[in-house]
Design a protein around this nucleic acid. Structure first.
Length: 175
DNA sequence: GCCAACGTTGGC
DNA sequence: GCCAACGTTGGC
């Protein structure tokens, strides 16, 4: 029995050449397979709940950044790639009766009006504590605060800052 | 392509 | 349990 709570917020990374926001838009729901990091797995397995909100992040991209929104559609999903010898994510040590890699189904919500590049996120003082922006942080599944989530959604409705505007706002902010 | 930072593996 | 070597992530 799990105590009910407000939806939590997450950021999930994917390389768009492998699986992009447009791919998710097409298939609607996708099992988040291939995560082979225990910390990321534990967040999916133990913390995520149906209805939680997700920032869908493109990594290793040009540019990398937040591309869209998704929701957690189902939890406790067995990552089938661990049992597939042909998969790059095959885990020969994992057993059917005790699967090591548990993930979630992620459902498409919408694409952001524009992609928010990583460099732009770094310019926003209120986002300075995001896990994504911490030095050396490379968790592919990570928590986001409600405020961070709301701010990024709001940023996406505004035009991309020009380099000059970006410099000006930084100068203003320092004042 | 480079490389910093991190995680995992395995010898001892 | 320590830690060096190795592999991976992911920005640039």
């Amino acid at each position: 029995m799990t105590k009910s709570r407000r939806p939590a917020h997450w950021l999930m990374k994917t390389e768009p050449e492998t699986f992009s926001i447009d791919d998710l838009a097409r298939v609607k729901v996708e099992p988040w397979t291939g995560v082979r990091n225990y910390q990321a797995r534990n967040l999916m397995r133990d913390q995520m709940q149906v209805g939680d909100r997700v920032l869908f992040y493109h990594s290793n991209a040009e540019p990398s950044g937040v591309a869209g929104l998704a929701t957690i559609h189902r939890t406790g999903v067995v990552d089938e790639t661990q049992f597939d010898p042909a998969s790059p994510y095959h885990d020969p040590a994992s057993r059917r009766d005790e699967p090591r890699w548990i993930c979630v189904d992620v459902a498409f919500e919408h694409k952001l009006p524009r992609l928010i590049p990583l460099a732009e996120l770094r310019e926003v003082p209120a986002l300075a504590d995001m896990v994504l922006l911490r030095k050396g942080s490379r968790l592919s599944v990570q928590p986001v605060t409600p405020a961070e989530y709301a701010l990024i959604v709001k940023l996406a409705t505004k035009p991309a800052p020009t380099p000059a505007a970006s410099r000006a706002s930084r100068t203003t902010a320092r004042r």
